[in-house]
């Protein structure tokens, strides 16, 4: 069986096939695949017997359920007020410079996607960012270079 198909089947077995299990199943797919492709959404719809358009409509509501191809590591920089005041732009520039991508883009090797997001709940340690589920706070351009270098070397 296609790996995505079997992933979805396993997730549906785990969480259930009711409408209220849709989010956990989609989250599971995103956890593994980083984003919901057209194919994944159709398979989720089929597996859970939910109209495909509804799956699409629900997925696009949630900013953490990416529907565009994304890299292995999704970097989310907080752009809300405190982080904006405490230098999130410098962070962005540093990352853009290092990865040679603009905000919203993915590196050609599909390793990194750079996104902005809203308040992460770490304002007292601004600026904050997420790489996948991991939080980094009080990030400076120097620190972010170090962090990303580690990701590049995969030694995290």
């Amino acid at each position: 069986m296609n790996p995505i198909k079997s992933l979805i089947k396993d997730l549906a077995d785990l969480h259930g096939r009711h409408r209220e299990n849709l989010l956990p199943v989609m989250q599971g797919v995103v956890q593994k695949e980083k984003f919901l492709s057209e194919y994944s959404m159709i398979e989720i719809a089929r597996e859970m017997d939910i109209p495909a358009a509804e799956v699409f409509g629900t997925a696009t509501f949630y900013s953490f359920l990416e529907t565009k191809p994304a890299g292995k590591y999704i970097i989310r920089i907080c752009k809300t007020i405190t982080c904006a005041m405490k230098g999130k732009n410098q962070l962005l520039f540093a990352i853009q410079d290092m990865l040679k991508i603009k905000t919203g883009e993915t590196t050609p090797d599909k390793r990194f996607t750079l996104l902005e997001t809203n308040c992460l709940g770490w304002c007292h340690k601004a600026p904050a960012m997420l790489i996948n589920d991991d939080v980094y706070t009080e990030v400076t351009p120097e620190k972010v270079r170090e962090i990303l270098t580690n990701y590049m070397k995969e030694n995290i």
Binding site: H18, R19, E20, N21, L22, L23, M26, Q27, T58, F61, Y62, S63, F64, L65, T117, N118
Partner: peptide
């Protein structure tokens, strides 16, 4: 999954119901 409005109580319930 990243939606501020889901903190509003009825939106939260919609979200828990998979919508």
């Amino acid at each position: 999954s990243g939606a501020y409005i889901c903190g509003e109580e009825t939106a939260l319930m919609e979200s828990m119901e998979g919508r």
